[in-house]
Nucleic acid binder design. Structure first.
Lengths: 160, 160
DNA sequence: AATCATTGGTATGCCTCATATCTAATTTCA
DNA sequence: TGAAATTAGATATGAGGCATACCAATGATT
């Protein structure tokens, strides 16, 4: 996703069109807000030459040394074939290594290199800083409420 | 996006991997929650043979009869070339028409047909019902707080 | 040993997004 | 007014994120 939605202010001559119906949907609001967050994240990660998915994979590998590709795919909620190219890229850049698992020669144990861990540190710090700025207009209690609501929504699928 | 993330419960044997670092980011939580909402929306719209984008376009055209394609692209935050195929599809299905604008022969005024408005009614009702179910675990005050927070986040870009 | 399941990989296609470029039509303005 | 710039829509094309089908190698089951 290379969007970076250009935020164009409404031209005063053309009539602004109404999205009242859509605004009544939480999903629509979430998408619009998430676009902003994602664009910000994309811009934040660009200096590190990371995309959202490579960043996510790197973080999970650093935090879970030795995990298998299939576990990582599960955690990232993507299919195994799509993870391969992500791992390929991280390995090519020597941010991680594919270690053979002695007890199961089909599998790889993924581990971050020193360089990978250093990039992780810098990227996580940058993303954290950007999030703080993005949430500057909200007090902590509100953020906590939102996070809790998001968790409820995320878990709602298991009911349906 | 044809995802429909298969919600697999964690196998008890394999160690669940930790996403603690990522969980600390609001963006990550938003993405996970939004995936659920989007999957639900996709499933809800499937019986109507609508995707999120065709649905969004249809709703905006019904609510703003006569708008131009470029206005619609602006409202949907997508590029004009990408809107063309969406409009093509809606027109082919005779849900909307491209009327020539007499005062500007470059432009089209988009209008929904009767069939389009009928589909709109059904789809909006279905999506509304699904949202109610998805948000069943949250009280109204919480939803209001979340919507407000989302608006603050969405507008935050204009500050940066 | 034979069958089945799993891991990682390859090939492939769809959808969403972007950019560059084209035409026709309309504005702008020297 | 007439040339240049701008705009509306369309086409072509490519990147990236997703899915499925299929394969080879290995491991698990019986």
């Amino acid at each position: 996703m290379k969007q970076e939605h250009s935020r164009k202010q409404p031209s005063p001559d053309k009539p602004t069109i109404s999205d009242t119906t859509l605004r009544s949907f939480v999903g629509y609001r979430m998408k619009r807000a998430f676009n902003v967050v994602q664009d910000d994240l994309t811009a934040t990660l660009r200096p590190f030459d990371l995309r959202m998915l490579t960043y996510t994979a790197l973080v999970l590998i650093v935090d879970n040394p030795g995990l298998r590709q299939s576990q990582l795919a599960d955690a990232m909620d993507i299919e195994r074939p799509n993870l391969v190219v992500i791992i390929d890229e991280l390995e090519r850049r020597e941010l991680i290594v594919r270690d053979r698992v002695p007890t199961d020669r089909r599998a790889y144990a993924l581990r971050a290199t020193l360089v990978g861990r250093q990039l992780y540190d810098k990227a996580v710090a940058a993303v954290t800083a950007h999030e703080v700025e993005l949430l500057a207009g909200l007090d902590n209690a509100t953020v906590a409420t939102v996070l809790d609501a998001l968790r409820v929504i995320e878990k709602a699928r298991q009911r349906s």
